[in-house]
Amino acid sequence: MSLLQVQNLRVEFPTRRGTLVALDDVSFEIAPGEVLGVVGESGAGKSMTGAAIIGLLEPPGRIAGGQVRLEGRRIDNLPYEELRRIRGRQIGAIFQDPLTTLNPLYTVGDQLAETMTTHLPIGPAEAKKRAVEWLELVGIPAAAQRVDSYPHEFSGGMRQRVVIALALCAEPKLVVADEPTTALDVSIQAQVIALLKNLAREKGTAMMLVTHDMGVIAETADRVAVMYAGRIIEIGAVREVVKNAAHPYSAGLMGSIPPISHRVERLQAIEGAMPRLSAIPPGCPYNPRCPFVFDRCRVERPELMPAKANRAACWLYAPEEAHRLQESGLA
């Protein structure tokens, strides 16, 4: 059975000019020990999905429909206190900026120990001991001394290691990592990704990895969901999505990434920009930018359907449109 089930999740932001739909009918599952990558451009709703799962939506955003289930139990409608206990114990969170995640007034050891005594049946002495062990585990040199240091005494990469320790120390079943390496330099990024991946594998932790960096996803995730304008438009095994994307948007996204291995004459760009939430077009949200658009795309909204080895929300893959798929050259 899957560890996390998200079904038809809908997040709305009421504003003076009407209700904005930030997430629209988002459904996916994560199995124990699995890494699901969530990619998309800024404003696609990928961070919003993570925030909705851990119950940290910024007001006035609210879950307006659908369900989030952890091990079969609904967690999207729990009272604040109950959800707080699940957060940390069952779900760990890693955010982009390690400096705002850590409390500047407490030593990193205190913060680790506090998390563990809150969520695990252990005393302060044991927690302190484990804090040192965790710092060693995430590769902080001289952990026994550094445990009494404050966050400002660490460099960016080291802080993100502390945040990883903090997210994993209560041994949660699921970690939601939102752009965990975006604030880091590329040589540090590689260290942190390797660490995150190995720890998750060792502890059997499932992970939802939100990032805009396809390289990170390709190296880390088992499956990947591509988001566009608040919807999942393609989901499948990472190799299939990266190498053989079905949805025209995913294919365009992969094509627009500059390759490191060779120089290309001209990069494949997607014309236009993602629509604002207040002006999502009817039908398929990608239709104004899509090179293969036809009448149906402008009227009728596609659901996820089998497409190549993945599932994609694109009318080209409807059985009755097979001739169009042939013509498009995407098949």
Partner: peptide, 24 residues
Amino acid sequence: RALMEAIPDLEMTGRTRIPVGGEV
């Protein structure tokens, strides 16, 4: 060379790379 090693790429060759240790 270390910098080039460290870039995550789409090729997914499954190469084991040696991340450069330490920080700037």
